[in-house]
């Protein structure tokens, strides 16, 4: 139950702080937006107005027409969505095994998964590149998907295993008696109940893959295969950095992420709690 109380000093202070934090977060975004609207000759101005004098969407047009931006976006989208789907599928089944079955090495396996997270990401780039290269998967979607989905796997497995552990086994047993097999119980009972955790894992996979730069840098050398971060950084400094176009594309790439977040928030707060058991 939410209790509504008259605002008190504490509440005001807390809300003030939250508001301030929001402003701090949003301000750079607003600046980028503002820069993206500036006409070409005014980029380096110190003008602080949100809507600059002579504002136009010209930079957006230039990004879309004069660069491969849409192609990079497409590459990113294909890689990210595939990565997220494969990553979550693998993690959800692996985590189920870790949560429900005792098998030789289950404890060690979990510990090792956590261990991989202790290794700095930078150290993994070279071995990862060598593996992808030997598999002849450089400059391919598949290579990127493999590289990305395995690197998010440990985190996803831990999140999901922790969540599965809270789901009473009796639910699956009831399903077994009712007429499913083990996989059916997983599919029809455990997965639907795990939507909050699955969406967290999905978001994690998605944002990781969407924003990733270093791994893409070493695996993708053909500019037609570039993901947007590579393409975008290519706009920097050949002759001079196109700050307007840079800002415009930076804003454009947040749109898919925003969409995914808004969509999955429904699952995150869905409150599909386990009220079906106990009294």
């Amino acid at each position: 139950m939410v209790e509504r109380r008259a605002p008190n000093l504490r509440g005001l202070v807390i809300h003030g702080l939250i508001l301030f934090a929001c402003l701090v977060c949003v301000f750079p975004l607003l600046r980028i937006f503002s820069v993206s609207l500036r006409p070409g000759d005014r980029i380096i101005s110190t003008d602080l107005a949100l809507i600059p004098a002579g504002a136009s969407f010209a930079a957006y047009g230039k990004v879309l027409k004069q660069t491969n931006f849409l192609l990079w976006l497409w590459n990113s989208l294909v890689i990210t969505v595939t990565t997220s789907i494969i990553g979550v599928s693998l993690a959800s089944t692996a985590a189920y095994a870790f949560s429900r079955f005792r098998f030789p090495g289950s404890k060690l396996g979990l510990a090792l998964l956590l261990g991989t997270q202790m290794i700095p990401a930078g150290m993994l780039i070279l071995p990862l590149f060598l593996m992808i290269m030997r598999l002849h998967l450089t400059n391919t979607y598949l290579g990127m998907v493999i590289a990305y989905s395995v690197s998010s796997l440990p985190f996803s497995i831990w999140i999901l295993k922790g969540y599965y552990d809270t789901i009473p086994r009796s639910l699956e047993e009831a399903a077994l008696v009712d007429g499913t097999d083990h996989f059916g119980a997983f599919l029809r009972i455990v997965l639907p109940l795990s939507m909050p955790a699955l969406s967290i894992a999905f978001l994690f996979n998605f944002t990781q893959a969407w924003n990733e730069y270093l791994v893409a840098r070493v695996i993708l050398t053909n500019s037609l295969m570039y993901t947007w971060p590579l393409g975008l950084f290519g706009l920097q400094g050949q002759y001079l950095t196109q700050w307007g176009m840079f800002s415009a594309s930076a804003l454009l790439v947040t749109i898919p992420v925003l969409g995914v977040f808004l969509y999955s928030s429904k699952w995150l707060i869905s409150g599909l709690t386990l009220g079906g058991v106990k009294g």
């Binding site: 009796s170 639910l171 047993e173 009972i189 709690t273 079906g276 058991v277 106990k278």
Partner: peptide, 14 residues
């Protein structure tokens, strides 16, 4: 061909 009633009822919450 059995049916079982569990101690915690085990109703499917969703």
């Amino acid at each position: 061909e059995i049916a079982m009633v569990f101690q915690d009822y085990a109703l499917y919450p969703h």
